[in-house]
Simulated assay, not measured.
Amino acid sequence: MALLHRAELRPSKLDLLAAWLPGRPWFAGTAGAGVTRLASYRFDDPTGEVGIETLLVRAGDGPVLQVPLTYRGAPLAGAEEWLVGTTEHSVLGRRWVYDACTDPVYPPALAAAVLAGAGQAEEYFEADGVRNVRPPSMTVTGGRVDRVEPPTVGAPREVVDGDPTLIRTDHVELAVIRRPAPGEPPTAAALAATWPDQPTPLVLAHATPH
């Protein structure tokens, strides 16, 4: 489960993305335009230390872009080139925002969703000891559920930043579709999503175990 905070971010996530996205090789849209949030989903970090959120956004009148992010309370060693930016969280303080594809907490979470049907995290707010669940803004579905436990993945040993972005570990290759579109994935081990304005499933990711 993902605990959320009723907090202010300066700069906001969308402001960070408006500056960062045009420099990506897979960017499509209007450079300099505002970034619109279409939907989002989260995965759980087993330690509860790192926020893992994927935003589906659009820059200007461009196509849908998928942007997985991680939020950390301290810099991630060796990940300077994958830093999206820093933001001040009114509850948690300074947060370091990274492209999640290079963060070691993300590949196991994505593989668990794709290969083991782990699904997305339930999001909730807590006030005075009362837990209030926030309805999801989108529905994420794994394409194959054939394992009892999530697969062993390991940290990324190589990330190829393109569309798709390829995350290569010792046990699986994960492909994150940056400009998701309807269609058949190249493998049954895939993740797809819908939301109210997007009733036709979009393929988000797929996996190839070694």
Rank of each mutant, 00 (worst) to 15 (best):
D99M: 03
A100W: 01
C101S: 15
R58P: 01
E126Q: 14
D99C: 04
G129W: 11
P46A: 09
V130L: 14
V105E: 09
G60F: 08
W82L: 12
Y98V: 05
R131G: 01
P75Q: 11
P63G: 06
L76A: 15
E49S: 14
T70R: 03
Y98E: 03
G117R: 02
W96S: 04
R95N: 00
G129N: 06
V84F: 13
A77C: 00
G85L: 11
E49C: 04
T47F: 07
G51E: 05
R72A: 10
L83P: 08
E80C: 09
R134A: 14
E126N: 06
G60L: 07
E53P: 07
A111V: 03
Y124H: 10
N132W: 13
D61V: 11
R72G: 08
V133D: 04
A74E: 14
E122H: 05
T102S: 13
A109T: 02
L115Y: 00
W82S: 15
A127I: 09
G117F: 06
G129A: 11
R94S: 08
A121M: 00
A111L: 02
L115Q: 05
E126R: 12
A113C: 08
D128G: 01
E123S: 11
T54D: 09
D99Y: 01
T54K: 07
S90R: 11
G51R: 04
R134D: 07
Y124I: 01
L83A: 11
D99K: 00
P135S: 13
E122K: 10
T86I: 10
H89E: 10
D103S: 11
L55E: 10
R95M: 14
P108G: 07
D128T: 00
L76G: 02
R58V: 06
A77K: 12
G85Y: 09
E123F: 08
L110Y: 06
N132Y: 14
L110G: 07
V50N: 00
V84C: 11
V64Y: 05
L55C: 08
Y106T: 01
R58C: 06
E49W: 03
V84K: 08
A100F: 02
R131V: 15
Y98P: 04
A74S: 14
T54C: 13
L115K: 00
A74K: 13
S90G: 11
A74M: 05
G129Y: 11
F125N: 09
Y124M: 04
L83D: 07
A74T: 13
V130H: 13
G48K: 01
Q120A: 15
Y106L: 10
L55R: 05
V50M: 06
Y106A: 06
P107K: 02
A77F: 12
V105A: 14
